[in-house]
């Protein structure tokens, strides 16, 4: 497989700085994502995460620095589902396939098959997005992103507004998709547990302007990340001084730090 591939897929960001008017939002960002790798950008609100993702997606032209991507088919999920309100669920899922020029019948079949895999009801496919619950809309947005068989998935906190159960379910779907297709992921989140659940590497962004203050390898197989491990690892990660500083958490009492 690797021998057949001529271009190595990767996303490279070097020396990136961006500003809105006089206000710098991110500064000196170096970040690279290899094929099949999942990177989570974690940071407090206002640390420029969304800007960084927008630049990676090519939606924002950076002020300074170099962004180079050889991924052929990036797909994106936004903070809100952002479905087209005037198109039925099935056509919303098939949107990217239509852009790629797949014929109507073929793309609708593919979309329906994917929708079923993601746990959407057949009956829901004929509804307009406004008739779906928030959780279902997120599912449709995920299906729309996965429909084009992306090699890079850009996620802008898409699960932030969902309840724990739905979040858990969509995390599992995403993890399964990673293992099935080997899609690379760049996700931003302020949920440390979500990052530990899905990513290979966690990059902590903090400050104003946002800079990378820490990088952690998760180093555990995706299927081995059960709830027990996840809770323990999250607790451990939250004790990291860099992370506490990034989120402006009060320092831990000394006794507890010793105990850990």
């Amino acid at each position: 497989m690797a021998g057949v591939r001529i271009i190595e897929r990767e996303l490279n960001i070097v020396g990136l700085t961006h500003r809105y008017g006089p206000e710098r939002v991110i500064e000196d960002i170096d970040l690279s994502i290899a094929a099949g790798e999942a990177v989570a950008l974690v940071g407090p609100s206002g640390s420029g995460k969304t800007t960084l993702l927008g630049i990676a997606a090519g939606l924002i032209t950076p002020w300074e620095g170099r962004v180079h991507s050889t991924f052929a088919r990036p797909a994106m999920m936004f903070q809100e589902p952002r479905l087209l309100p005037w198109q039925r669920t099935l056509d919303n899922i098939a949107l990217g396939l239509k852009a790629l020029g797949h014929p109507r019948r073929e793309r609708r079949n593919a979309a329906a098959a994917l929708a079923q895999r993601l746990g959407l009801d057949i009956a829901d496919l004929d509804k307009f997005p406004a008739a779906l619950s928030g959780g279902m809309q997120s599912r449709v947005a995920l299906a729309r992103a996965l429909a084009i068989a992306p090699d890079l998935l850009l996620l802008d906190e898409p699960f932030a507004a969902l309840d724990v159960g739905l979040k858990h379910e969509l995390h599992a779907l995403l993890a399964a998709e990673r293992q099935r297709s080997g899609v690379a992921v760049l996700m931003i989140t302020h949920d440390v547990m979500e990052a530990l659940r899905l990513a290979d590497r966690i990059v902590v962004l903090a400050g104003k302007p946002g800079r990378i203050v820490a990088t952690t390898e998760v180093g555990r197989d995706l299927d081995a990340r059960d709830d027990g491990w996840l809770l323990a690892r999250t607790a451990e990660f939250l004790r990291t001084p860099n992370l506490r500083a990034a989120f402006a958490l009060p320092p831990l009492p000394t006794a507890e730090r010793v105990a850990s």
Binding site: G58, L59, A75, M76, F78, E80, R82, A99, I148
Partner: peptide, 25 residues
């Protein structure tokens, strides 16, 4: 603007942008 970003992220060709995203609105 948010739907415009969707159109851009999914690389919709111009005709599709007009017909599927802008026109209905």
């Amino acid at each position: 603007d948010r739907l415009r970003a969707v159109a851009q992220a999914f690389r919709l060709p111009l005709g599709m942008r007009l017909r599927d995203v802008y026109l209905p609105h």
